[in-house]
Design a protein around this nucleic acid. Sequence first.
RNA 1: CGGGGUGUGGCGCAGCCCGGUAGCGCGCCUGCUUUGGGAGCAGGAGGCCCCCGGUUCGAAUCCGGGCACCCCGACCA
Length: 569
Amino acid sequence: MRVSRFLSKTLRQDPGEAETASHRLMLRAGMMMQMGAGIYSYLPLALRSIKKIEAIIREEIDAAGGQEVLMPALQPIEAWQQSGRDVAFGDNMFHVFDRRKREMVIAPTHEEAITLIATANVESYRDLPLLLYQIQTKFRDEPRPRAGLLRGREFTMKDAYSFDTDQEALDVTYQRMRIAYRNIFRRCGLPTLEVEADSGAIGGKDSHEFIMPAESGEDTVLVCPTGDYAANAERATSVIPPAPESAPQEMTLVDTPGAKTIADLVDSMGITEAQTLKAVFYAADKEVVLVTIRGDIEVNEVKLKNLLEVRELRLATPEESVAAGLTPGSTSPIGLTGIKRVGDKSIQQGNNFVAGANQADEHYKNVNYPRDFEVDTIAEIGTSKAGDGCPNCGAALDEVRGIEVGHVFKLGTFFTRTFGGDYLDDAGKLNPMVMGCYGIGVTRVLAAAIEQNHDDKGILYPAPIAPFQVHLVALNADKEEVSTAADATYAQLLELGYDVLYDDRLGESAGVKFNDVDLLGLPVRVVISPRNIKNGVVEVKRRRDDESAQVAAADLPATLAAALAQDEL
RNA sequence: CGGGGUGUGGCGCAGCCCGGUAGCGCGCCUGCUUUGGGAGCAGGAGGCCCCCGGUUCGAAUCCGGGCACCCCGACCA
């Protein structure tokens, strides 16, 4: 492609609305254009990368036994009513009405549609396993779209769904998909962590997320440096730091004027956070629940929500706490009845705690569980953090921020039971198919790739997903010797099968062209100039390197191939 | 949905308090000179000042109402 004919124009200044690196760089590089909150047109540069990512995905999912289909985005609402997910998705789903005022939805995901396909086509165990996938546009009315392609309301997703005879067969498919995912991200040139994940409301047992480490990521992951454990912080378990233990003392009431927080207690009593208990109130589907946890640990709301099996969970308001008989600032499980009480297992590690007394300006000291108070349930509901021990080997866990680009999980039989997705087994009995589902946010992969690979001048694409592999630059292109040589090199590189962006612009200075090269971030730059022609060389520079190499024209193909191969993982 | 912020040529911004011909930088067009890290000179094109209503002789500016977008928190690929 000649730059002189190319649609995309670069901007010299950062656009005002964009703060996140990928968002800012994609707008500056002319890759995309915004049309609304979380809604973008993909211009040629972005679309070329997206297609390369899609091609890699197709190859790997096909290799794993997948068959590509394409399901409608526009769907009658009935299927969603049948699964109950019209309510579950709520405002996250776009609704429209057809001319006869029938309600339709624009699908945010395709479990309903795929289950109907499988149900209609699978009759016996001989038709299984079945793995179907599509690459399609998803529509989700996100509460807060953000950061360009990182979280859009319309985005491209690869979603795959597997159907198996039973749990054991699903396990095999699931493992095959995990491997396919590893291959996909490796081939894209994008280091990605595979971590244990929360499977959410519908979820089955197993769930793994693929996370690309990046500062701007919305997810926090705990990783063991030995490599034997990695999990999303939402579900990570860990060995918590020990708390001091001593011979149990008698529980006594102490005056704590003005002390309302754990920090106040630590300051005024000369103790550590691990020597306190905190009581936290939650509103769980209207019911108020008291959580007691050691003062140095934070409640993990995802774990708590899963434990309580509720749909909605939030901190109780002070009014709700008071109404439940509590004293904010000195809330306590001691002597409390008539309310659901949950204890984190951390209260079993350590003793002689300082805890609230349900009276302003008073606390108890030397509180011991279970001697001094009861809970209805004890479970692990604390948040793991950096420095905690790995659950497998005890080594201190590291914390990494990242972007979720893929998610695989075992769905089970919810949808097949709902839609009558039964098959006949070899004994002639009907059983529901067991499903798995597997997503990759294709457009998010592109944004995450840029988050992961950029510097202060621009993007640094890994070669496999770069919109073009080579940025050919003609300096002083209005000189005939230059345009002749550059045109010939362009033709040669195309002949060799490379994707080439050829900056043939006549009037632009070297500075302008080089800055565009750095901004667009194609993996290799090739410069044709009067100076290089005089010296009988072409100049080759990787975007990631500081130095360029001068090579004889005859050596250009080999030099290019070597430079591009360096991005492979 | 709560909190914070912004809407002015393609992009980045000023003007708004204190109403009176809409301005700057970049980009764009023409010509000449220049040409290895965002060139110079000269000439030029381009604006429903987010929308609706009000006040006023007169509104980008004041008042009321709406809309859009961005950022921070609860959700997800």
